[in-house]
């Protein structure tokens, strides 16, 4: 009886939702027309192609198509998990990803906070512009610069050797890959990523500072209790989004920087799949690994969101 009641309620609720939406559409047709292209876009380009993941379970041959290729079940997944490099590439991917969250993620926040404290706009503007410029250098050129600076006769290697640190060609030392990756990442993108925090900081209500001052808060207290608290939602959302792409490390950058001598620390899932899958026309295998990637990312995203919701009350949804 109760169940029926509940079902009935649900049905009413559902029909309510439909009639309400229809009414809403009648009321604001222009708004719905405006959102229509976006919905069509996602259906066409994001949802419709999804049946392509079937390739992950096939020995896919392009000319035969998904309908014509042989199904092989979980063969590609088993091959991937049994691959002798599976442990290494997964480890590298996770290490590089988490290291960049730990080291690279806070830098733009700190940078934005520092800039925010400078009240002279003739200093703030140029500093900001200069700091986000490197973002616009193309990745190929950028990696060329890194390779050049870190070779045995490169400027950075030479400077280090002046202060007594002999490194030789840095990109042939497995242990140096991660620092090079992280530091160059900060150099390239910290300024750019700070923009969103700068925007958030600009929106902080001046009255909050005044009130804090009246309450006797010093500069540190204002920073902690007003500034950081105000931009916390932005930080959390950025962090959740970052966690969602935890297995998607900078493929392009690694591909341009690494060499076989430092595979030990630099070979990640995407570069390995590139070598093994695409160069050998093994489309099924590549799709399988990417599907694995997406599933992990999806889980990470949901987990991060839930944790954040519980602990900070900020969440994406």
């Amino acid at each position: 009886m109760q169940v029926m009641e509940k079902n009935k309620a649900a049905v009413i609720k559902k029909s309510n939702a439909i009639t309400k939406t229809l009414a809403d559409i009648k009321k604001y047709p222009q708004l719905y027309i405006m959102i229509l292209p976006v919905i069509v876009f996602y259906i066409l380009f994001s949802y419709r192609p999804m049946y392509g993941v079937l390739m992950a379970f096939q020995d896919f041959v392009p000319l035969k198509g998904i309908a014509g290729s042989d199904f092989v079940g979980f063969k590609h997944f088993i091959t991937f998990f049994n691959d002798i490099y599976f442990g290494r590439i997964l480890k590298n991917t996770v290490i590089i990803s988490f290291a960049s969250i730990i080291f690279c993620f806070p830098v733009p926040i700190i940078f934005a906070l520092l800039l925010n404290e400078i009240k002279n706009k003739y200093i703030v503007k140029p500093v900001q512009t200069i700091s986000y410029m490197p973002h616009f250098i193309s990745m190929v050129v950028f990696c060329g610069i890194i390779r050049d600076f870190t070779k045995d006769t490169g400027i950075i290697t030479q400077m280090l050797s002046k202060i007594g640190i002999e490194t030789g060609t840095m990109l042939s030392k497995p242990s140096l890959f991660l620092p090079i990756y992280l530091i160059s990442d900060i150099w390239k993108d910290a300024g750019w990523n700070a923009i969103i925090y700068m925007a958030a900081l600009a929106g902080v209500d001046q009255q909050l500072y005044d009130a804090a001052k009246v309450d006797g808060a010093g500069r540190w207290h204002q920073l902690w209790h007003v500034t950081i608290s105000s931009i916390m939602p932005t930080i959390v959302i950025m962090l959740i989004m970052r966690l969602g792409s935890v297995l998607n490390v900078g493929f392009e950058k690694i591909l341009l920087l690494y060499n076989p001598g430092i595979y030990e620390t630099s070979d990640v899932i995407s570069t390995y799949v590139y070598r093994k899958g695409l160069q050998e026309f093994n489309y099924g295998y590549s799709t399988a690994v990417n599907l694995f990637n997406s599933v992990i990312s999806f889980i990470m995203l949901i987990a991060a969101n839930q944790i954040s919701k519980k602990t900070t009350e900020y969440a994406l949804w």
Partner: peptide, 25 residues
């Protein structure tokens, strides 16, 4: 969420582009 879907979508999309012509072969 949307970002993820969009990303997955791009990946898969390229896969489908490959296949949708296959019938002509």
């Amino acid at each position: 969420m949307k970002k993820i879907i969009a990303k997955a979508g791009v990946l898969i999309m390229s896969a489908v582009m490959l296949t949708s012509f296959a019938g002509c072969g």
